[in-house]
Design a binder for these strands. Structure first.
Lengths: 123, 123
DNA sequence: ATGTTATGTTTACACGCGTAAATGATCGCG
DNA sequence: CGCGATCATTTACGCGTGTAAACATAACAT
């Protein structure tokens, strides 16, 4: 089952640093998200059920660690979008952003470098 | 309110050709999706409520036309993903697919061409 | 004018999500 | 040992979604 958006926010905290307690997660995410403690606990439990995080008892509390990696998550999400909207091909996606003037100078130079590197690898 | 995935399937049919009747939509989408007539009708009604399509009476039936354009939809969806996962920047997204070996030869050559064109425009 | 057919509209229902209150378990202190 | 504090688990609730059955309505044929 898929990770929801709110759940992903919690994962994000764990991806930055793990393991963490529920309290730490709340501290990091509460202000921005304006969530109560119960909300974070629920999200953690759903993530446990989905096997996206692991909980290890540490005295009276639990330490949460991500099982699903950020790579895996990003992979799923972006492949889904790519397939649904761009026939699974990357170039049309970039073209889309290009038309939308969403390519910064930095993007362009990085893309250039990336293509260069692919060239080099290509022996 | 956002267009859901099932709703987007209906939109897709209309983007390919419009206006269309509910029956035509069902004919096009039913086999692949294995949907009943009622399902398509419901989706159309929700799209109406969301002002994503317009319905015009034509005798005993309605002709449905998209109001939301494919461009707009693609725009929303892909910007969302870009912001959530790649800090709103395109290059990291492409880098991601590159690492994942998801760049076909065709992608690479098209990207090269794209960058070339951007260069040319650049006066 | 009426029944049958073709359409559209309403209602339904289970499930996931966002959010949180209520409840339960556990630890430390007195 | 019993109480309060601290966590975690369970339960709840409204909302959107996916799916569809039930119901209403309008058009056509007889």
């Amino acid at each position: 089952m898929a990770i929801s958006e709110a759940e992903a926010v919690v994962m994000d905290v764990l991806w930055r640093k793990a393991p963490r307690t529920a309290e730490e997660i709340l501290a990091e995410v509460g202000p921005a998200q304006d969530w109560q403690e119960g909300t974070v606990k629920s999200l953690l439990n759903r993530l446990l059920r989905k096997k996206a995080v692991h909980a290890e008892r540490d005295g009276r509390r639990y330490l949460y660690t991500p099982l699903l990696t950020r790579e895996q998550y990003v992979q799923q999400e972006s492949k889904g979008l790519l397939d649904r909207l761009f026939g699974g091909r990357v170039a049309p996606l970039v073209a889309h952003f290009s038309e939308q003037r969403k390519l910064s100078k930095k993007d362009v130079s990085e893309l250039r470098k990336l293509l260069q590197e692919l060239d080099d690898e290509q022996h």
